[in-house]
Design a protein around this nucleic acid. Structure first.
Lengths: 342, 342
DNA sequence: CATCCTCGTGACAACGTTGTCCAGGGCCTA
DNA sequence: TAGGCCCTGGACAACGTTGTCACGAGGATG
């Protein structure tokens, strides 16, 4: 057993290569390549012989080698926060559909909101030479991406802006959406309105808080310190924050929830109370219609689709300056946001 | 400009290679490789020089070439039905976590319940030489996988069994879960119980129906034809089926919903009615607790984790016969399943 | 002082594919 | 009939990396 054979045993379990197919079909290597890639210049008879050899051996082209040779992987990377979050499911799916339309596969990973893990993932994807990257950033400094972008990996940031690096971005109008939602509560008579949001280092969290403040200012309402709480979206934290706002001598009469996870916990807390509390949440939630929850809805699928389309436009050679797209949000009144102050 | 240079321009945007790093550091190619891979046998001084060159050039190892050489891609493929379905989010995430623990990336795709698309995706993943595959099958004939499996691509089927091919499987106890859920309704006094499920070619759908029939038989109840409806889970279809069962002279008093999408629509239909209708759904749903929906819960994350762990055990060399694991389900009573017959 | 070992290093082939280029045969045209 | 062209097919290099092996310097040992 020579060295080559020993190797082969551990390599892809001895898969046949084009060379094997060529030998069996009695043709040259390149001819097999032509058949596999449906290139012209092969007589029907030769093609048939090659095809038979392919079927007999169970040959399948090794795309690793192909990628190495061609320099394109026909795959894009998607780094998001948590694949299990219902907001990201439709987003991934939309990205996948666009990728599929362009013949590309999707490699994705969750950063778990950890900047270090984000970087690790992104760089692993770059090492694989994905053609493009869609990133929902966890961190706020992305200078580590500079050499990669310069080297030609098209990149689009989604949902949150990139830090210190000039790339395409697709965002939702967090500021405007939150402002509209809070104004909606104010229009229904509320003045003591609470805000519970995600960690302040997350851009959407601060944007939504900014929207909250803007709406309050517009209405001439002075926001009291204990009406606002940013932090983890763990149920315990959110629950504690909500309960504190709802207790005391002068409790809030309405609550604005900064994202889907906060909304879910807020709904639970409010359901346990006797006094009704108005609620508007950012992000739509399944079954929110049945529970009568008023939300600011952002179209996750549209965000994903837009980002992916931008990416492929770049890959197809578009060379304009990086653009920043902001998608609008929609207020969906369902009852919880229209309750009057208790 | 010679041919090589012309090429380089289109290849990964002229990324530096180990050769470039070697030239700049004044060392041999292999030494760079050693530094990049933290192999022993490099003096600190040499290592420093190489590292400087790497940083200066922004070099990042090309994993495509590495893969070609090593024969392992450190990536696994996950083919599921729809990334946007809330059931698959946690499943994917669990798979991803296990993959990450093994240093592998996850490539995933949605079959959209289309057998042809499933095959296309699976074979594309095989062409990329993923180390392993986790498949939630759409079709029922997977003989096309035989050469791939023989060639050494470890494969685990999830949620639904594989057709005509002998591989590891991780399933939920659809039969037992449905049987328990229906028995629960019977225990609460129901006899006229409807069943709405997914398309009959989907294994879990028929298994759950089998569980329904078993429970009914156990209770000595004869199932009437129009109590059972299998088909698409599109809201319109489910709504029509439910409304038919709830109308007529002798309507059903309870409904068993065959999966999460059916449950969601069923809840809506029932909410519109005056007469209360008991409901038990297969799969848990977010906020089901607030809506008081009794469900048969299967732990999607556990399913994903188990499947991924099986896969990596295979990849690490386990060579036992293909196993079939069945995970138990849990009945979670929340009110809707405990309503007495109206 | 000769010999053997160890250690750091580099040359080279190989992984499986595709792009380029060339050769030979058949056909058409002048 | 000769010359040229087109069509098919194959030889070969290259993609960027890693495994193998060999080589030379320096230290240890006799």
């Amino acid at each position: 057993m020579d060295r080559t054979a020993r190797h082969s045993e551990t390599r892809y379990g001895n898969r046949p290569t084009m060379k094997d197919v060529a030998a069996r079909a009695g043709v040259g290597l390149k001819t097999v390549s032509r058949v596999v890639n449906s290139e012209p210049g092969v007589t029907p008879d030769t093609e048939r012989r090659v095809q038979e050899a392919i079927d007999a051996l169970g040959f399948r082209r090794n795309d690793s080698a192909r990628v190495l040779r061609k320099g394109r992987t026909a795959s894009i990377g998607l780094v998001l926060e948590d694949l299990a979050d219902p907001f990201y499911g439709p987003l991934s799916r939309a990205v996948e559909e666009v990728a599929r339309a362009h013949g590309a596969l999707l490699i994705n990973g969750s950063s778990a909101e950890d900047p270090e893990r984000e970087q690790e993932l992104v760089l692993a994807l770059c090492a694989r030479r994905v053609d493009g990257l869609i990133v929902i950033p966890a961190g706020d400094d992305h200078r580590y991406l500079e050499p990669e972008i310069k080297a030609g990996i098209a990149t689009v940031f989604v949902d949150r802006p990139a830090g210190h690096v000039d790339v395409d971005m697709v965002l939702s109008d967090s500021f405007g959406g939150a402002r509209e939602g809070v104004a909606h509560l104010i229009a229904h008579g509320h003045r003591r309105i609470g805000f519970i949001g995600d960690q302040p280092r997350i851009h959407t969290a601060t944007e939504r808080l900014r929207g909250y403040h803007a709406a309050m200012r517009d209405a001439g309402i002075t926001v009291e310190d204990d009406w606002v709480s940013l932090g983890s979206t763990e149920p315990e934290r959110v629950r504690a924050a909500a309960e504190e706002m709802l207790s005391g001598p002068e409790p809030i009469t309405a609550l604005f929830a900064g994202n889907n996870r906060v909304t879910v916990t807020a709904v639970r807390v409010i359901a346990e109370r006797e006094r009704p509390v108005a609620l508007v949440g950012f992000d739509d939630i399944e079954l929110a219609d049945l529970l009568g929850i008023t939300v600011i809805s952002q179209d996750a699928a549209a965000v994903g689709r837009t980002a992916a389309e931008h990416l492929f436009r770049r890959l197809d050679g578009a060379e304009h300056a990086p653009a920043r797209v902001e998608l609008p949000t929609t207020l969906i009144p369902r009852g919880s946001g229209e309750l009057p102050p208790a």
